[in-house]
């Protein structure tokens, strides 16, 4: 067996380093194998991805959209994914969706906090104080036999869910 690539030194020292490396690799591997695998065990989480549930291709699909009235009187439209960059590595980009969903949810006792957070986020993102911010529910018909299965411009319903008067963007 050749272990000549272990850094040089005395035989005992080399042996100690070798043992240390083996213990480290096996320890880390054991921590990963015997962790419960849940995301809460991060960074020793397993790759439990797309393994449960039943995907359902829906006939209609709903998404929030933020519409911002700027100081010049023109409207800007933002998709939930435009609000944050930190979740760019995911396919679902839940950060913006979560914020908007909690801001409009009438059952959420803390929705005012999320509404303030949205105002602050929009102000910082667009670098201006908006005169008004609106959250809309947009609905599309999806036809999987066509390409593309939906067109962003052709919604079947647009419903105003929330109107927020512009503020200075108080910290939430």
């Amino acid at each position: 067996m050749s272990r000549s690539d272990v850094p040089d030194g005395s035989a005992a020292g080399r042996r100690r380093r070798e043992l240390g490396a083996v213990a480290f690799v096996l320890g880390v591997a054991a921590a990963l194998v015997f962790s419960d695998g849940k995301r809460s065990a991060w960074p020793f989480s397993h790759w439990w991805l797309y393994h449960t549930g039943t995907p359902k291709p829906l006939d209609t699909i709903v998404l929030h959209q933020v519409r911002v009235l700027d100081e010049a009187g023109s409207w800007r439209r933002l998709w939930p994914r435009d609000l944050f960059t930190l979740d760019d590595d995911s396919s679902s980009q839940d950060m913006g969706h979560g914020l908007l969903a909690r801001a409009v949810d009438p059952k959420n006792a803390r929705r005012v906090q999320y509404q303030r957070a949205l105002l602050r986020r929009v102000s910082r993102l667009l670098d201006m104080k908006p005169k008004q911010v609106e959250i809309w529910h947009l609905t599309w018909q999806v036809d999987y036999t066509k390409y593309p299965p939906l067109e962003l411009e052709n919604t079947i319903a647009e419903e105003l869910a929330l109107v927020l008067p512009g503020q200075s963007g108080e910290p939430p």
Partner: peptide
């Protein structure tokens, strides 16, 4: 599972992270 995921997830990803939908999925 994968057949339905190809249909559902491609549209969801398009709306959520802007990834183009593959025309081959259907």
């Amino acid at each position: 599972y994968v057949a339905d995921l190809l249909l559902e997830k491609s549209v969801a990803s398009y709306l959520r992270n802007g990834a183009p939908i593959s025309p081959l999925n259907p």
